[in-house]
Amino acid sequence: MKTFIFAAALAVLAVCVSTQTKAQSIEKGKLRFGIGADALLPVGNFSHSTNFGLGVTPRLQYGLSNKVALTFTSGIYHFFPKNMYAQTQTQLYAYKWDLDLIPVKVGFKAFVSSHIYIGGEAGMGFQVDNGGGDSEYLYSGTVGYANKKWDFGIRYENISGNGYRNGMIGLRVAYGFGL
């Protein structure tokens, strides 16, 4: 059943991508720059240590065609930690796991209609708190709406490295302009 649903979704996506609609926010050979604010909701095991996160994400976009663009995204994610408790033989103590991450991702944005797009990104996240130095792999899938000025997207992003894997749902609101 899962295979059938996946195949049906791919067929619908192929039909949408193959239609001859002209995207309103990408021009072939043109650069666009956008600055986004992100609301980040940890899911799975990540939600045990983190309440939520906020991010600022500048994005550079280059139009390969009127429907497809390459993207480069960076910025910073800050996650607000929960109080966690650990116990030794003699003492119970509270601690917080801080995470500030600088994402550096490349990806694509493909319009399936004049304003609706799908996208994907992959890259690295570099920790800047607790002495920094650690890096994680990042990859995400996005569905969104964009016009000449505004971009609204929702994504699932995975952060993995150092023996763990965490996920989050991200909502990005961005203002963009041509360069």
Rank of each mutant, 00 (worst) to 15 (best):
G34V: 05
Y95Q: 06
K67R: 12
E136K: 13
Q24N: 11
T19F: 12
N66W: 08
A122I: 11
I76T: 12
N51W: 14
L138Y: 02
T88S: 10
S25Y: 05
F46I: 00
Y93Q: 12
A39V: 12
A110K: 11
G63Y: 01
N45C: 08
E27K: 02
Q24G: 09
Q61M: 11
Q87H: 13
G125I: 05
N130G: 13
L64A: 07
K28Y: 08
Q87D: 10
D134S: 14
V112I: 11
Q91W: 15
I26M: 00
S49K: 15
K82F: 10
R32N: 10
G44Q: 08
T57E: 11
G120Y: 07
G53N: 08
S47V: 03
Q20K: 13
A14E: 08
Q89V: 13
L13N: 01
G107Y: 03
M124E: 14
P81E: 08
V15T: 13
L40S: 03
Q87W: 11
F108D: 08
Y95S: 04
Q89W: 13
T19W: 09
F111I: 00
G132T: 01
H48F: 13
A94W: 10
R32K: 10
W97I: 15
I116F: 11
W97F: 15
L10T: 02
L31N: 03
S47Q: 10
Y77K: 06
G119V: 01
A11G: 09
A86T: 07
K105W: 03
L92G: 14
M84Y: 13
K105R: 09
L60Y: 10
S18L: 03
A94N: 15
G75R: 04
K67G: 04
Q20R: 14
F79L: 13
G123S: 01
L10K: 05
H78A: 14
R59A: 07
L54E: 04
I118K: 04
L13G: 10
